[in-house]
Amino acid sequence: MSNHAETEHHIVSPKLYVVIFLSLLCLTGLTVAASYVEMYSFNVVVALGIAIVKAMLVVLFFMHVKYSSKLTKLTVFSGLFTFMVLIFMTLADYISRAWGRW
């Protein structure tokens, strides 16, 4: 176990937290403003796109994943991957059940 590479404990500075906090507030404002603009089917795309950016900021900086071990990064990724499997496999099922009968 002695060759096990432990992560050095990285302390994120308050300045960075403030920057992330303000960006999150701006993005919240942006997503609300965007919902008032008629973009047809792109309203959903923009809203979810902004939500994903916000979530990434929280995960990478507030949750320190950017400074974490490879194990943590892999764990987070595998969680998202499993969630994607849930979404896409379920949708693939629903879309293909009534194939050609829409």
């Binding site: 008032y36 603009v37 973009m39 959903v44 939500a51 979530a55 929280v58």
Partner: peptide, 17 residues
Amino acid sequence: DIIWIFLFPLLYLISRH
């Protein structure tokens, strides 16, 4: 917090238009 970040647009925003 992240859960809410997704709930907010899905429940409140995307159906506005």
